[in-house]
Design a protein around this nucleic acid. Structure first.
Length: 507
RNA sequence: GGCGGCGUAGCUCAGUUGGUUAGAGCAGCGGAUUCAUAAGCCGCGGGUCAUAGGUUCGAAUCCUAUCGCCGCUACCA
């Protein structure tokens, strides 16, 4: 099976922040999970460049829009790399392949009779890249961008006949209950469809930073209309028909809850008009909110994801975001909770289990792992946790999946106290018994390691190497997790502390 | 204004189609241990389940109203 997932592409007018990092991290977790299930995965990320904001940001630095975007590509890609986010394809909307796709799709929509010329007049907020009605403005200013005055624009525009697709979309929603998730977002879009859709203006004049319409070179495609098309561009469409047939439609568009409307209504309508399949699922995730107001270094609050990763470790940051948030709902970011998660679940839980297991094994058994007992209740429960984990991951319940993985660790730690291997070690007659318990612990760790892998790839690959002496096979890490056992006779090597406790300077 | 959601232990939250003493994690307190990253394990949580009514043999779980918080939304004034 193939699995194609995408994240929203980002405006490159500033550095990536924690909120955008959250989306990419969760997408990366899903992508790694799918790879571990043996699926052929295409994970797409990219930058959204044809925006007035972007052009303005470059101008401030004395750069052309393209020069600026070239520079920002490096900034974004290195940030994602530092966060262990590994897309298979990275797209920029200024690329020739995207221009070609946008123009091809626009032509198709034109041929379908869904573009017509009209005139639009109204306030335009550069910050939102959108026209505003009077009632959208507060004291004549955009509520979201009060620092810049909206401009009064009157221009000839190409309109997209969105209204025509209202009924087909309703039918699609009805036939596909999980087309848009979570349900609250789906209901919002259903309400929108019930009210009926209006046609939307999709062209802009007065700028050449954008993609011209193939049938009207004087105007460029509105940035939103342009941006959505990146998802199909990245499959090779329209040139590479074999590739696009293989990869399209996407299995999952992961987007912020604020833009589900574009992905669940506008984009599918564009595709329907062009005679192309619509994506299988759109998931609107929640936001990472800041408590106590503004983020500030002075207050000891850092929200640059790279700084957080630097302080607490990439693994802890990724783990915290996935374990703490109910995917789909907002997360109240708390550095205290991040620290608590890093120390309790990772250092004291998983890390300590690895350390004590390896310690016992190397001290008393020269690191040699014995065969796991045939009838181990502990390992049976660990195997069962794999099922729970997978059930959760399939419905994008990242938190539930992590809870299942953590359960394995918790039970293994309790097992040490129940069986007391350190008592067995003092009695030569109990060596076989000792070997059995240690094998149960090592194999619990192995399963926990595999299930945690999508969330903390580098750390878990390191742990796997220590446990088994071999590299984790990333194409079967999950599908082969249930019943996985360390080969008897393997010599386990004890490494440095996997997750050192983080002691705070704070009192 | 309309539609929808939420309000459960100090904190973050679970609570199936209403049914015995309302649960988990974290934090905190107490205890027995020692393999380990002063980690782990065991025990301890009398919370008006926002408020007031109602339905029912029985409601955190259904209905109504109120208060508070939040989301979506009005091409129409």
């Amino acid at each position: 099976m193939r699995y194609y997932l995408t994240t929203a592409i980002d405006y490159v007018n500033s550095r990536p922040h924690l909120g955008t990092a959250y989306e990419k991290i969760t997408a990366d977790v899903i992508a790694r999970y799918q790879r571990g299930c043996g699926n052929e995965v295409r994970f797409l990320m990219g930058n959204d460049e044809h925006s007035q904001k972007v052009a303005a940001a470059g101008r401030k630095e004395g750069l052309t829009p393209l020069e600026w975007c070239d520079r920002m590509e490096g900034v974004f890609r290195s940030a994602w790399s530092a966060l262990e986010i590994q897309p298979d394809v990275f797209i920029r909307t200024s690329e020739p392949r995207h221009r070609e796709a946008v123009q091809a799709l626009a032509q198709r929509i034109k041929d379908a009779g869904d573009f017509y010329e009209g005139e639009y007049e109204g306030w335009y907020c550069v910050g939102c890249e959108a026209f505003k009605r009077d009632e959208d403005l507060k004291d004549g200013l955009c509520p979201d961008h009060a620092n810049r005055k909206p401009e009064w624009l009157k221009e000839k525009n190409w309109f997209f006949r969105l209204s025509r697709w209202c009924e087909p979309l309703k039918a699609h929603f009805a036939a596909n209950p999980s087309f848009v998730l979570p349900e609250s977002r789906r209901n919002e879009l259903l309400a929108l469809l019930d009210r009926g859709l209006e046609d939307i203006s999709v062209s802009r004049t007065g700028t050449d930073w954008g993609i011209p319409f193939p049938f009207d070179e004087r105007v460029v495609v509105y940035v939103w209309f342009d941006a959505l098309i990146n998802y199909i561009t990245a499959t090779g469409w329209p040139q590479d028909t074999a590739s696009s047939a293989h990869w399209w439609p996407a299995d999952l568009h992961l987007v912020g809850k604020d833009i589900t409307r574009f992905h669940g209504v506008v984009w599918p309508a564009m595709l329907l008009s062009a005679g192309l399949p619509v994506p299988r699922k759109v998931f609107g995730h929640g936001f990472v909110n800041m408590s106590g107001g503004r983020m500030s270094k002075d207050a000891g609050r850092v929200t640059d994801p790279l700084e957080l990763a630097n302080t607490y470790g990439v693994a802890a940051l990724r783990y915290y975001l996935c374990a703490e948030a109910n995917f789909g709902q907002d997360l109240e970011f708390s550095e205290e909770r991040l620290l608590a998660r890093a120390n309790s679940d990772l250092a004291n839980g998983l890390g300590n289990l690895a350390a004590r297991t390896a310690g016992m094994l190397t001290r008393w058994r020269e690191g040699r792992v014995a065969a796991a007992p045939q009838s181990s209740a502990l390992l049976a429960r660990a195997d069962a946790a794999v099922d729970t984990y997978q059930r959760c991951m399939e419905v994008l319940d990242l938190r539930g999946a992590l809870a299942a993985a953590t359960q394995i660790v918790t039970e293994a730690n309790a097992h040490v106290d129940r069986t007391q291997p350190f008592a067995m070690a003092k009695d030569p007659a109990r060596t076989a018994e000792l070997d059995g318990v240690l094998a149960e612990l090592v194999n619990s760790l192995l399963l926990a390691c595999r299930l945690h892998h999508p969330f903390m790839p580098a750390k878990m690959e390191q742990l796997h190497l220590e446990l088994t002496g071999t590299a984790l096979d990333l194409t079967s890490s999950i599908s082969g997790a249930k019943g996985a056992r360390v080969l008897p006779g393997t010599i386990l090597v004890k490494g440095a502390a996997l997750f050192p406790r983080i002691e705070t300077a704070k009192t």
